[in-house]
């Protein structure tokens, strides 16, 4: 019988391992966005190309809104994947956050442009209204400009497959079905 007692450490470890296994699929940095299920804040701003843009211009179809900056290393890492998404036909708007527009233009010229349009937010006011905690961050909005999801950190194939695409497809189907 006392042999069974020697299995206790193993059982404790198995419990811990199950906990870790579950923990791997949780994001410790995840914070629910205050904006979820609410429309984007109203704004009017300049774009990187010098045009003017407002929140209503983003409506019409589901889209991603990607907060980025040239000073952010993870943004550089995700940029190639954004290009790929744009090539697959995903509408992506950029918010160039607390950045230098000249540097941002060079960046786009060098790395390619996945964005339908880039909203300039050099002072970070728009970011503040959105509740941005750091770049990169990506919001999924529907055709009416309502925020459905927020993802903090770079978007890659894994994030797209597991987090964004399921919601995105639902929105797209919903939009075409209406």
């Amino acid at each position: 019988m006392s042999r069974l007692r020697l299995f206790i450490p193993l059982l404790v470890f198995i419990a811990l391992a199950l906990l870790f296994w579950r923990g791997l699929s949780l994001d410790p940095n995840y914070m629910p966005s205050a904006l979820e299920n609410r429309p984007l804040p109203a704004f009017t701003a300049a774009t990187l190309d010098g045009a003017s843009i407002s929140d209503t211009d983003l409506r019409g179809a589901p889209a991603l809104v990607n907060v980025w900056a040239t000073w952010c290393p993870s943004c550089a890492a995700e940029h190639a994947y954004l290009n790929e998404l744009a090539r697959r036909g995903v509408r992506i708007y950029g918010i160039n956050y607390k950045d230098d527009p000249a540097a941002a233009r060079r960046w786009i010229a060098e790395k390619g442009n996945p964005y339908v349009a880039n909203i300039l937010d050099p002072s970070g006011h728009l970011g503040l209204d959105l509740g941005v905690t750091g770049a990169p961050e990506t919001y999924l909005i529907d055709a009416a400009g309502v925020v459905h999801l927020r993802h903090q950190g770079p978007v890659d194939e894994r994030v797209w497959q597991r987090v964004l695409q399921p919601a995105f497809s639902t929105l797209e189907n919903g939009a075409s079905g209406r």
């Binding site: 042999r3 020697l6 450490p9 193993l10 470890f13 198995i14 391992a17 870790f20 791997l24």
Partner: peptide
């Protein structure tokens, strides 16, 4: 993380089984 967890499972699980 998955790799290290699997490794942890083999090393710790294996050695604790041996112990038991």
């Amino acid at each position: 993380g998955s790799f290290v967890l699997a490794f942890l499972g083999v090393v710790v699980g294996g050695s604790l089984t041996l112990y038991a």
